[in-house]
Write a protein that binds this DNA or RNA. Structure first.
Lengths: 336, 336
DNA sequence: ATGATCAGAGGAACCGGTTCCATTCCGGGG
DNA sequence: CCCCGGAATGGAACCGGTTCCTCTGATCAT
């Protein structure tokens, strides 16, 4: 049987209250008593029951991390950072995977209420803005959204300037002499949609007209199977772009294989740029030129805001916006 | 303020006990009363407090998943499977990352006791057998070890036959005509050590002498920085093997880049085989020939054993051993 | 009519902690 | 010598549920 605070009380002939006091250093305890209590705890190998503690304190020292897909290294990495930082502050993370499913996202957010977490960090939510807001309000628990639609005004957010990131890519490619640049996306997240805007605006700013046939949008499902028929077709028709901008590294890596299969060389025949700078981007051959998304910093800021809120700080909602930068590797080169 | 069972009781003029009965379908309740209670719950948007429930029932419906490194896709994938399956049975997973640190592994295992999880799934523990056993016994909570040292007799385990897997690789390479096969490892986990045994035995079985200079062992740290000086040296000295067997895909993918940098082509100059079949193995160029480790099946079996134990089943410890198989991609070819 | 049976509901103890309040005991100042 | 104040401790209520036991009243067979 588990040893409880009562067992310690009985053994030391001291009341529960006093035991609790030495446990939490709350209130005065005579040095002699303290010693005796601590010794008894050691002897019985006493471990306070966190559940009982949580019930009493109405505080669990856990925060929920809600994310789209733990198998995606981008999220796994984010999750790792969050977990580590939270741990430093005595919290433990309950990770919650929603598998890119809006319904599960809703359900998961709601379940956080049941699970009595003290706060929620939501990374890359895909659900409609309004639904997110409603769910968050319903839980009555501090919540910070990281890497999300920046239009959400009522909740604290940490976002990346994806439009700027998209422009960065185009600027860079144009500076290498490219003018025929394709954009490949699934338009799945708001981040992707913003990157698309950056792509268009970047081109315009450089005086290049946006060619709709070079914008290839295709659902996540096919990407998971590693296919992109529209891109293949574009190339087979002899309309191959000289550079491809993929809306994230995951897709970029798929494209490496597709081009390889078509006998096209990267970067000799076509330059390729990704977005996110996941670990694999540096491991792949050729090394992928990409936009480094400072997810660790974003998580860091997000967690710190959350900690403040959990500490009881009210005040106006915060909206941090960060900028990404380009990492040049081997998948891009000057056009001949 | 949160609405509790007492608020419902007050509103419906019914006792707590009855509310609890309709909540859990335990014991008889008149249809009229049930209706009224349910309506009141809806009206006040009542959500039972899981913490209080856990305290009372001494059961949290959570299980801890302890693993080495969530950023490693192999573990992320395993974690995902575990989480999903547990969810099906009404449990939620608390993931616990130990970052390849034996001390954290110990601490984490212990903390599971505090956190009152109902069970623990430990994936790829690296700690000394004896320590693991002690920690697990100390928590007095069901625990299943997946992908671990199979010598642990006192705890349920699910393991891969890594020796067999290693032999598989050697057999395959020899059948392609290779005789000078290097083995690259960090000897970090027991899995790696067994694969090494498989490598040696496979060679012997084929009548090839094991050349110690072809076994390259090097700590995890350098791998994380993407380096392998010993392998580089071996090749620069003109002793390049015709095939390389990496102890896992992670290392294999690093090696792809190293060889690329040395101007060696895969598979034309040297064949490369990994182990694990992580997602990236199929995404990388050239596609990596590797051993498919059925981690999903291993997790599946592990979770089912754990569920039985949590259900109260005693009985002798179980030890499942699975076999992996080879997946041929583009990183290997017949020797000229 | 009567006793047995049982559905339906309430009361109270319990899970293992925390905390407010009351009580005791002590020494020091008036 | 008495009173006051504060340190040390105990007692009891509380957090929000579950569950055992008891009690009531209706139904049914005898």
């Amino acid at each position: 049987m588990k040893v409880t605070i009562n067992d310690i009380a009985e053994l030391t002939h001291v009341s529960k209250s006093t035991i609790s006091r030495v446990l939490n250093n709350s209130g005065p305890v005579a040095e002699k008593t303290r010693k005796a209590v601590i010794e008894a705890m050691d002897r019985l190998d006493y471990k306070p029951n966190e559940i009982a503690r949580s019930l009493s304190l109405r505080r669990t020292m856990t925060v929920g991390i809600v994310m789209q897909d733990i198998r995606n290294p981008y999220y796994a990495n984010a999750c790792w950072h969050g977990d580590r930082l939270l741990e430093e502050f005595g919290y433990s993370a309950v990770i919650c995977n929603v598998d890119n499913d809006p319904e599960r996202e809703q359900a998961c957010l709601n379940s956080m209420g049941y699970r009595s977490v003290d706060g929620v960090l939501c990374i890359g939510p895909q659900e409609e803005t309004a639904n997110i807001v409603r769910a968050v309000e319903e839980m009555e628990i501090p919540c910070v959204l990281v890497d999300t639609d920046p239009e959400i005004a009522k909740i604290d957010t940490v976002t990346l300037d994806n439009v700027y990131g998209g422009q960065l890519v185009v600027d860079y490619l144009v500076s290498l002499g490219h003018r025929k640049i394709a954009f490949v996306t699934s338009d799945f997240t708001s981040a992707e949609r913003e990157r698309r805007v950056g792509y268009s605006e970047g081109l315009k700013a450089r005086g290049i007209e946006v060619d709709p046939s070079l914008i290839i949008s295709q659902g996540e499902g096919q990407w998971h199977r590693g296919e992109c028929p529209s891109l293949m077709e574009l190339i087979r028709n002899g309309n191959a772009p000289t550079a491809i901008f993929a809306s994230n590294d995951f897709k970029a890596i798929r494209i490496v294989r597709l081009l390889h299969r078509l006998g096209l060389s990267i970067p000799d025949d076509v330059s390729l740029v990704g977005f996110d700078d996941i670990d694999a981007a540096a491991m792949v051959t050729p090394g992928l030129t990409t936009i480094h998304q400072p997810i660790d910093k974003m998580i860091d800021i997000g967690v710190r805001i959350l900690l403040k809120r959990m500490g009881g700080l009210k005040g106006p909602t915060e909206h941090e916006v960060l900028r990404a930068w380009l990492v040049e590797r081997e998948s891009t080169r000057k056009i001949r």
